[in-house]
Amino acid sequence: MLIIPANSKFVMLCIAISLISATVIRLALQKKNPQKDYTELRQRIQSWWWMVGLLFGVLIIGVSTTIAFIGFLSFLALKEFLSITPTRQIDRRAIFWLYLSIPFQYYWISIGWYGMFIIFIPVYIFLIVPIRMVMLGQTEGFIKSAGTLHFAAMLTIFCISHLAYLLVLPTTHVEAGSIGLVLCLLILTQFNDVAQYIWGKLFGKHKIIPKISPNKTTEGFLGGLITIVSVSYFLGPYLTSLSSISAAIAGGLISVSGFFGDLVISSVKRDLEIKDTGNLIPGHGGILDRLDSLIFTAPVFFHYIYYLEF
């Protein structure tokens, strides 16, 4: 069992309290308008309970368990991506190697081998995949398949694994611990999605990128950006060793990269003409629908911290 540092413990408690309030508000709404259908809201909140419960559970058990858990998320995300994206039947033998690379990538993280963690997917897996494909010997559709497999590995294994590496960075803020970095990234990323949505709903007029997402507006984007920069200005120094100014910049990076992460997965879905990537999480869609922003914010936040502090 890991002793959760004080600041992180307090933030986790706040999250638990806000989840309880969400449930209470939902029940009150239901009571007030009994004829209205709150199934989707109920499902969404219920799923949040599961996601937060699982995450906090593994964080409390310890670092190795959390790393294994994030590895499992990579597995689910990779599987989902390859299930909705067309590949040639023969590629399944190369895909097998992608799955095999997940335990290795997370093993490097668990022993804190930064050099291997940072090159394993972009160098070795990058080379191994086309080598395996050459051995399979089918040239028709080769480029497209190689591209699909590399894109999938980078998004779902390499990018997501940065979240796990935050946990093994040397502690620079004793009261928050390495968990503080993970909480900070997750809170800012999720809150950015919510803030952009709310600002867009309230003041949204000018569509920012209508071809990909008709619901995204300039007002939503800027409102989200300002909100996250301000939240990060105060939250950052509490959960990480960043100064207020550096934390505000981190907030800006998270807001912008999260916005694009969301759009990249949206473009993938548009290309495939599907609405959700799966239905693993009731009320949310698939795991990629949930992790879309995080796939981009995790490496950006990680390397910002790594550059400043190590």
Binding site: F75, K79, L82, I84, T87, R92, R93, Y99
Partner: peptide, 14 residues
């Protein structure tokens, strides 16, 4: 995709 006819290697897919 996960286990085609005449194959023995199971590869995970949704």
């Amino acid at each position: 995709k996960a286990l085609p006819k005449d194959e023995s290697l199971l590869v995970p897919f949704n």
